[in-house]
Design a protein around this nucleic acid. Structure first.
Lengths: 340, 340
DNA sequence: TGTCCAGTTTAAATCGATTGAAAGTGGTGT
DNA sequence: ACACCACTTTCAATCGATTTAAACTGGACA
């Protein structure tokens, strides 16, 4: 423990490659080649390798990150741009990414746009400045336009967008099967016996929303279920309010006021499901006694609130892992792979 | 826009200090001195400064982060260690930190320990390796022992712990007035007319918990309120289960089974408040009709769940900002300030 | 005329690594 | 004895900045 801590001390002058070279009796070049397992190390005698590795280990040598990056033009970092760190939808994805990268020598550099599109530009610049080798963008439904990401992608930086349906083929996307999710939501309510179902859909411009809606219609058609158009509404496009809570609360009130009959509501996501529940409650109606409500995402608190929220699960952690994996794959083969 | 984007292109060889020097007709030294406003720049002619700045601006010069850090031994980064990114308690604090640092040239490097103490060691090493100039640790109540942080602090790295009461004077802490919080919670319930109040306190070893408890007792004494010892329980110490939800749910069940009379419950934090509500609900009891419950923290969802959770607010965002500010202050005066 | 100084600017070393080209071995074949 | 080869190791340039000490330029003064 004592020695372990000692390595961290800032006071002591850093241990450099030359120190290891001197101690092991070889030149800095050889040491570098061995420790990096550079291609050239094929030519280094086995005994030499052993001795060098042993010495490095014994002295507790850690290469200087900055010197290395300067020379090699590689940062060993992956930029992670998240639209809103406080959004529980995003944090689980982040943890997935972190978990995956932890096994590698890549460090995620997390930047939080704080829901302000202006910050996105700034942070993307910072990422490039810091020579990230790949970019994962974690988008919630408030995501700005993604043209910036296309720019990055053009620059031969591997890029993945996770959490939101992408509409351009230039960028890889990681998302759940939204169509199937919509289908499943309807199926669940149908099996509970509901036949008159209201829907709080996402913003019209959001592809995710359209796909979920398509899934719902598909189920309805299959079951010869007629959907009442008066009970289908979209949340407003990228609202400034920032929250789908208020939006869905208002829509629910509209549904109730319309006098149209219904017994269940499908919400676009978990937060809007909470909005629905709030609106119902304010009208003296209870969930699940009077109405059934179903959300989408399965954010962590969904299971903790009472009654616990019924929701279509998105495997957020796994999505994060998968996104990170995509980047790692792009980085593997030979770094010029995607230049073509 | 086009030119702005152009600056980002990776393809084009980076623009270096020498390029600016050549274009402006001065030497790299002078350019460096001017652009950094180094002490020596007092001696540079005003016209020269102007010309250099103009040229740098025109060409869109951005210094290379790695070269700069290598030479100057400064990284312009602040390490942010968070115990659990998925904990809503932590994320708001993080945003506060980010918000504050955004105004400066420091970049937060966020590392998520994922609730695993083992990772803490690893990440602290990474931070030092990356030469962070300060460390902010965002602790939730599951925080491991903080001896590691003391090590850092010994190494003359400014260190702040936010979100949890610290017991050692070696480390600066940023936290809410827990004692006053406990007092306020009791006061609130008292004013609602409650006289028999149960408490789900935090783990006994946690200083925060003790202080809140002290605040509650103080109010009780002042009001000559007798607290029933059978209705005061602590959550288990740093449980492996990881969640205070289950713990407080069980304690609430114990309270109910004990047959002791009570009409309100103070919970240690918001998550445990949800545990209380769940337990009550499972016994056919409703909040707020049958029982009053109060939490602590004011995590974002507290306002969204129905009924919305009554809670003692911690100004998480502001705490984050303040913590970042502490670090910035330590960094200002002259970097040797805290060496003494 | 030569010296000195204040006011500016720059040369050159340095930070700590990576890397392509070159050099040093010793053994073979002729 | 010479050239040649395979096998190892090292030289020296380089990445792009910062920083110390030194150099340059005119004018003032003796």
């Amino acid at each position: 423990m004592a020695t372990k801590t000692k390595r961290l001390r800032l006071g002591a002058r850093r241990l450099t490659l030359s120190d290891v070279a001197r101690a092991s009796g070889f030149s800095p070049s050889t040491v570098s080649i061995v420790l990096n397992e550079a291609p050239h190390s094929r030519f280094v005698a086995a005994g030499t390798k052993l001795k060098i590795r042993e010495t490095a280990e014994r002295l507790g040598y850690r290469p200087d990150v900055f010197a290395r990056s300067l020379r090699s033009r590689k940062s060993a970092t992956i930029g992670v741009l998240v639209m809103d760190l406080a959004d529980p939808f995003c944090t689980l994805i982040l943890q997935g990414i972190e978990q995956k990268l932890r096994e590698t020598s890549y460090l995620p550099i997390i930047m939080d746009a704080h829901n302000e599109p202006g910050q996105v530009q700034r942070y993307v610049e910072m990422m490039i400045e810091r020579r990230v080798e790949g970019v994962v963008t974690v988008a919630n439904w408030l995501m700005f336009d993604i043209s910036l990401l296309e720019d990055i992608s053009d620059d031969q930086l591997p890029t993945v967008l996770v959490g939101r349906e992408v509409e351009t083929p230039a960028i890889r996307g990681v998302m759940v099967n939204n169509e199937a999710g919509g289908y499943a939501a309807m199926e669940h309510l149908y099996e509970l016996g509901h036949r008159e179902i209201a829907m709080v859909c996402g913003p019209r411009r959001l592809a995710d929303s359209r796909l979920r809606w398509r899934g719902m219609r598909r189920f309805a058609q299959k079951m010869k279920l007629k959907l009442n158009p008066a009970l289908v509404r979209n949340l407003p496009d990228i609202s400034e309010s920032g929250s789908s809570f208020e939006g869905s609360r208002e829509l629910t009130n509209l549904f109730l006021q319309s006098g149209e009959p219904f017994t269940a509501i499908v919400a676009f996501d978990d937060i809007s499901a909470y909005g629905v529940i709030r609106a119902l409650s304010e009208n003296g109606l209870q969930v699940p006694q009077d109405y059934s409500v179903i959300g989408f995402d399965d954010i962590p608190v969904a299971a903790l609130s009472t009654p616990s929220l019924t929701t279509i699960r998105q495997p957020l952690l796994e999505m994060g892992e998968y996104a990170a994996d995509c980047i790692l794959q792009s980085l593997k083969p030979g770094e010029e792979a995607e230049q073509g």
